[in-house]
Design a protein around this nucleic acid. Sequence first.
DNA 1: TCCGGCCTGAAAAGAAAGTTTCAGGAATCC
DNA 2: GGATTCCTGAAACTTTCTTTTCAGGCCGGA
Lengths: 290, 290
Amino acid sequence: MSKPPATVRELIRENYASLTQSERKFANLLLENYPAAGLASITIVAGNAEVSTPTVARMVQKLGFKGYPLFHQALLKELEAKVSGPTKRRDNWASEAPEGHLLNRFAQAVTDNLQQTFSNIDSAQFDAAVHQLANTEGRLYVVGGRITRALADYAFTHFQAIRQRVTHMTSSSATWPHYVLDMVEGDTLLMFDVRRYETNLQRLAELASERGVKIVLITDQWASPIASVAEHTFNCWVEIPSAWDSNISTMMLLEAMIAATQEESWDKTKDRYDRLDELFDMTRLFRKFS
Amino acid sequence: MSKPPATVRELIRENYASLTQSERKFANLLLENYPAAGLASITIVAGNAEVSTPTVARMVQKLGFKGYPLFHQALLKELEAKVSGPTKRRDNWASEAPEGHLLNRFAQAVTDNLQQTFSNIDSAQFDAAVHQLANTEGRLYVVGGRITRALADYAFTHFQAIRQRVTHMTSSSATWPHYVLDMVEGDTLLMFDVRRYETNLQRLAELASERGVKIVLITDQWASPIASVAEHTFNCWVEIPSAWDSNISTMMLLEAMIAATQEESWDKTKDRYDRLDELFDMTRLFRKFS
DNA sequence: TCCGGCCTGAAAAGAAAGTTTCAGGAATCC
DNA sequence: GGATTCCTGAAACTTTCTTTTCAGGCCGGA
């Protein structure tokens, strides 16, 4: 035997001689418009080729399929394979680590998460959110939950470097009302909320929203309830082999936003950045490396 | 409104908030395995997601399709378009974002960084460092620099959950002498230091080292000078298209360490974790999701 | 021209697929 | 803690698809 797994296309060529006239009519149409012309129901497909359904059914059996549904599935599989095909890189990352080593399992999970997260970002929405974050007319507030507090902190540190009027709302929710008091329309609130979603964050979001503050929400794949009042919501995939959730993709999204914000307003930013550098140098707390 | 022709993926994202729990179960499966998970019959598709057919039918209608068959066709069209489309797009990632969009450049850089970082981890050293971090005989101190403070904070939050005797040394270096005073042999110091390396972090490392404290250092690819006194050093690749350095791979390494630490002492950890959960529940500040 | 074999598609029968209804049950709200 | 709302899937029902049957018709050969 020569060909264990044949494509439908090959099957048709092989059996073309044994096909009748109207069967060929369909076969030709399929080959010309492959595989789209074979993906609908047998009725429709037959209609398009202007033959009857029994004709198609018979032909499909000649090709070796037990029924039209199986033929249909075969076409689908081919199509799928084409799409996911060469992209399916499973490079073994942590090179020398043993197969089942946590490092490798972890690498796999993280890669998947990043990929998922990336493919679920709507770039238009991303751009819009960045535009909002770059708007220095209003003040930018940053806040996170129990775990994401660290991310909020990270965001604050960077945003503070590239724009003015940034406030980090501390994790102690007792102080939040003071901040809310000062919020006005045109301000922006960057929130982090991953499961287990925190009710006081939600209340904060509602209050801010009522005051006309635009909320940019970074949450997990299951979406915090805050999404309902947020202007822009982004979902990050967070599952890893552990009892808690990963924030790598969250961090990635955040960094992407910071980078984009900086790019959007680089003319203004650059100067600010340079001056900041000088200041840090002057304090002699930091040593330049290269 | 803004988007006349949406992909199914976008539709799901837009309507995610209005989906019920089991509808989301299916939605998630579809997003994770897109679009293959939506190409079979409603019965099969529902079975795979372990929900009932009505659930899928309802969801599909929420997305705006008049019936499952239409939804099915929409997915097919997308798949076809992808295959025949403009010269097979670059590695799926930020799927619909334009070629030169920052998101795509960013994704590329991050992937490279992670790959580099991973392949440069010596798994034996990793295991050794983890063992050190899991050692509850001594105290675990965590400290970071100007930017990495957030990472140190993140590390602290997690380590605190899985072991006792953890201290976060605040970023104000004025307070560090007090901590050093209490350090004894057998203690561990987890440090983050990326460029531009900070001299007071280095001095801290030296002092701690003299007192017999084992230092686990997480630094960048150029290595902080602290490496010379550290017991275990790990390098993370940090370059991205921006004026500053990325900490995604740093975060990744950190999370891997936390996960490994937890795994190493899961019997002790588990109980602590559960009790912590209960406590958070009791404060009523958090709401459980599923 | 007539005969016999073979295609072909209309239509019925059969099999899935998809939709709707509805009651039990979980979650939530007061 | 009880009432209420909303979610969920079993099951009946409807629609659509697929297969099979079968009669009409085309074609080549005598």
